[in-house]
Write a protein that binds this DNA or RNA. Sequence first.
DNA 1: CTGAAAGCGCTAACAA
DNA 2: TTGTTAGCGCTTTCAG
Lengths: 339, 339
Amino acid sequence: MAVTLHDVARAAGVSIKTVSNVINDYPHIRESTRARVLEAIAELGYQPNLSARGLRSGRTGAISLIIPDLKNAYFAELADAVMRAAGEHDLVVMIQQSGGMRERELEVLHGPRMRMVDGVLFSVLALGQDDAHLLDIPTPLVMLGERIFNGPADHVTMKNVEASRAATEHLIGLGCRRILAFGAHENEVIGSAGLRLTGYKQAIEAAGRPLDESLIVNVGNWHRSDGAEAMRAALARGLQFDGLVAFNDSIALGAMRVLQEAGIRIPEDVAVIGFDDIDETRYSLPSLSTIDPGREEIARTAVSVLMERIADPASERPPREYEADFRVVVRESTMGRAS
Amino acid sequence: MAVTLHDVARAAGVSIKTVSNVINDYPHIRESTRARVLEAIAELGYQPNLSARGLRSGRTGAISLIIPDLKNAYFAELADAVMRAAGEHDLVVMIQQSGGMRERELEVLHGPRMRMVDGVLFSVLALGQDDAHLLDIPTPLVMLGERIFNGPADHVTMKNVEASRAATEHLIGLGCRRILAFGAHENEVIGSAGLRLTGYKQAIEAAGRPLDESLIVNVGNWHRSDGAEAMRAALARGLQFDGLVAFNDSIALGAMRVLQEAGIRIPEDVAVIGFDDIDETRYSLPSLSTIDPGREEIARTAVSVLMERIADPASERPPREYEADFRVVVRESTMGRAS
DNA sequence: CTGAAAGCGCTAACAA
DNA sequence: TTGTTAGCGCTTTCAG
């Protein structure tokens, strides 16, 4: 059997409460006592039973991170950032994949596992604005992503509209005349695709240009292969363009590949900018200009907001919206063009 | 406060034991009783307190996965496979990153968090054969990776030597005369680099060719930028070759980029094959031939072996070594060459 | 087939 | 400054 507080107490010749005090850094302990207890702990190799502590204190020291899919580089990097931020608060992270499926998102969110963690970070993908009421769960919750705003929980996101506008303006500044909005979702207003399209339109309009609907290209999923496929179709129907704002990096990379296969040079013939700043963009050929969405800041903010809610679950403070700062990252795919 | 078994028992007019029986699918319950209890559970929205259950039963239903770094695509895909395999056993996964640092690996492995999970999957990177004794922990453990063999715990890995040999033979079969072993680690025998180099040497030898030491290129870390850098240096010193076996996909992709910048065509001038079959290899330009290390099988095997150990922690069965099957995946980077 | 009661290891009132 | 004690919610003998 494992060593318990009792064993340590007996070995150190003190009561179990004293051992508990030492472990929990209770301030008023005689130095000699503390030393004796610590020695006993080391000697016996005592480690606290976290289930017991969780039962008693109501805290487990774990949080859950719900994301669509770790194979997606964006979410893997988000998870990494979250785990490092959580580590600084001595929290451990349970990751649960939703596959971006509505049923699964709800299942995970309302499942019994939520009772195993102190709080949840939920990167929403399938649920939408109309489902906001379903997010009202007993566990402290912070939402991530662009699907639900002003819901019943705190929300950390990026400046989608502004960032997309800045990306588009970057291409306009390069002298691009016909800029593709690549990755739209039909009829979506809220959501990454909808918001980024809005930013694109704002930039075009601010430049005093007419909006050419034929330059808006839908890409259903945002995997590399979807980007490649959509670009292949666009070229097949003879679409003409000299700039490309992709709504994420993966489809940008997929599109770049197809462009290059077609003998189109980047950035000379077409300048390309993506979205997310995943690691890979630094190493593609050419390296990909993109938007750094402030992932680190998002993760840090989300964890600390969650910590506050955990610390004071009864707080009456209404849910808040947080927006991380973005940055236009200029790389080869938009560099060296005449401006 | 949350709903407890007592509340459900009271609502259903039965004892707490009966509710517990229903929840745990105890077979001998009158149907009418079961129905009444289930109704009460649904009505009150009862969810079991997992800490209490964990304290009482000694099981938490969670396992820990220790990996170096989620930003590394290989480990992200491994984590995904593990989480899906674990899900099939109703296990949830806590991911902990070691950064591939020795101190951190030990810290995590011996930390108190291990008492929060039923078992651990540990993808070893920094610890080596001499540290095998440090893996003797009270929590059921399954090791992954190529660093420690025949240690005190079950071990699931891939056929490194055979796979590397097969990759090399694939290039030999294509007619390559000077094949680079790309990604070696000086003096390493055990470990991914060491084993894969062994496979390379076996293939060269079996083909009746002399081993040319100058074709063995060290690459310290295995990130894309390291591959690019090593290739740049190789070209600078005038190294001549027409084939490239990279010991992982990332350095293969980095090297490909540098080769292409130098005007070297793939596969016409240099045929390239990588290792790991990360998602990205399907979409690079050209797509990258590689070794599928049997990640799915590794994950499934690891989880089920761990489950067995958890089910019978006192088992005297000695630790076992498992090897997943590999597969040579031929893509554009080695296709269409005269054979 | 169901109920009563003990106790998993810990924290936190309350005492001393 | 330290000890005593009562549960946290659940599973599990042991009776009935």
